[in-house]
Design a protein around this nucleic acid. Structure first.
Length: 434
RNA sequence: GGAGGGAUGGCAGAGCGGACGAAUGCGCGGCUCUUGAAAAGCCGUGGGACCUCGGUUCCCGUGGGUUCGAAUCCCACUCCCUCCGCCA
């Protein structure tokens, strides 16, 4: 969430910044009013509290000096005051809760660098890459044998069985077989191996508490998107970002250990409630997929270079895999609520003849850290400061798998995989029909 | 799942109804002494919120309750440890 003090000090500036992403000024006004009310009630309650404490002290003193009548009357007075204090405390608490609730629903302030825009159509493409572009190669022409959607290839080669996946779990739960399954495992190992130099490998739980989901901004607003296990009140994570961001929830980190960087491969679960009927073929939109995620805590000064590092690492993987992709600077209207700036990596899928997002590298400033209460102690001493959080998929396999299979398809129908995966596939990089 | 024990500041650990945001030790920071270091001594050292920036208030696992007053008493829950059962 954003700092309520910003609204207190310069409401117009906050309204203007949030206006860039389509938030009505009235919403900011509402928060300002709730803040006003809440502080007013808090002051009233504390004033009563002071009196109760003072009277209690006097009761104790009267008792000690043996002045029973005075003690009794002071005690009665304090009891009456305590009654009022309890009432005031209840009101103050209620006001604080509604303030927090309203604040949690407010999106982050967009970064100045984020381009203005209303929706996905206004995102700005900042670069495009394809194999050998450095040597002056033209954008690749894809042949007809590559213009086959991956679900058809998957069926031909016996490596993707969407029907049996649906039999087990319903539609949009994929089932991979043979080299299809091995390819997934290879991709995870490949990606993790590339980041362990600077990113600590974590294997977090896949089910988390409501607090953990709230810290990243996935709750309370987007509860429809999450799988919830009612019996135990646990949520299936939609991305490793959720557990990783909460790793140091409520803790104070030494500045010297920043930036702290983590990577993890986890399953990701998404209900896709708002997308029913869209992109339903193959792996484009599914309820469960594996993804390797990079995540970092950083100081404000470190944030830009960490953001660049995560982006470069995600791009590096795509380049090694030889896949054509483009980088989009998300406009204010398309930015996810907690993000101040996001670069999307989209890979080209010849079978679908379009680009699909495979990675989203985001800088959240202190928006998530304030929810999660993750701070660092400055080396120079002084008060703890909220960290900045950043993260990016180091590739979502449900979108990379199709791109690899479509791009690598040969005229004879087999699929040639990039050589860099050979060590993770036992040396076998060709998938042939069975 | 059953039985018992526990949860207090960066760590260890006292406190068990009133001057306790909390003894003491360690750690950490500053200073004194010293050629320097060590030792010794002195001082300081948690977090949040609010305001009239000097204060006020809240926080002793979490949430309720009792009381004029709760770290301290009561209830519920969570987590950790030990033992038993079950189990990948």
């Amino acid at each position: 969430m954003i700092d309520v003090r910003l609204i207190r000090e310069d409401r117009a500036a906050v309204a203007a910044a949030l206006g860039r992403r389509g938030v009505e000024p009235a919403e900011v006004d509402r928060v300002a009013e709730l803040d006003e009310t809440s502080r007013h009630l808090l002051r009233a309650q504390e004033a009563l509290r002071v009196q109760v404490k003072e009277l209690s002290r006097q009761v104790g003193e009267a008792r000690r000096t043996g002045d029973q009548p005075a003690a009794a009357s002071l005690s009665a007075e304090s009891r009456a005051l305590g009654e009022r204090e309890r009432e005031a405390a209840g009101q103050a608490e209620l006001a604080q809760a509604s303030l927090r609730h309203a604040l949690l629903l407010l999106p982050n302030l967009p970064s100045d660098e984020a381009p203005d825009g209303a929706g996905a159509e206004d995102n700005v493409e900042i670069r495009r890459w394809w194999p050998a572009i450095d040597e002056g190669a033209e954008a690749p022409e894809f042949a007809d044998h590559q213009r086959v959607p991956h679900w058809e290839i998957g069926e031909q080669l016996g490596i993707l069985d969407m029907e049996r996946g649906a039999k087990l779990s319903g539609s949009m739960f994929p089932l991979f077989r043979q080299m299809g399954a091995r390819l997934l495992r290879a991709l995870s190992a490949f990606a993790l191996a590339h980041h362990v130099d600077a990113y600590e490998e974590i294997r977090p739980p896949s089910l988390v508490l409501t607090d953990t989901m709230t810290a990243t901004g996935h709750l309370p607003k987007f509860s429809d998107e999450g799988y919830h296990i009612e019996r135990d009140d646990l949520w299936a994570i939609p991305t490793a970002e959720v557990p990783l961001t909460s790793l140091y929830r409520g803790e104070i980190i030494d500045e010297a250990s920043l930036p702290m960087r983590f990577c993890a491969v986890t399953p990701c679960f998404r209900r896709e409630a708002g997308a029913a009927g869209r992109d339903t073929r193959g792996l484009l939109r599914i309820h469960e997929f594996d993804k390797v995620e990079l995540m970092a805590y950083a100081t404000e000064a470190q944030a830009a270079s960490v953001h660049a590092d995560i982006t470069a690492r995600a791009e590096g993987l795509l380049q090694e895999l030889g896949l054509m992709y483009r980088v989009l600077d998300l406009c204010t209207g398309d930015l996810a609520a907690p993000s101040a700036r996001t670069l999307d990596l989209e890979v080209f899928m010849p079978g679908e003849d379009r680009f699909w997002e495979v990675s989203s590298v985001s800088w959240y400033r202190d928006y998530q850290a304030r929810r999660a209460n993750v701070r660092y102690r400055p080396s120079s001493g002084g008060q703890p400061v909220l960290v900045h959080t950043l993260n990016g998929s180091a590739l979502a396999w449900s979108r990379v798998w199709p791109a690899l299979v479509e791009t690598g398809r040969q005229p004879d129908g087999s699929v040639r995989l990039p050589d860099c995966l050979a060590p993770y596939l036992g040396g076998e990089t060709v998938i042939r029909p069975v």
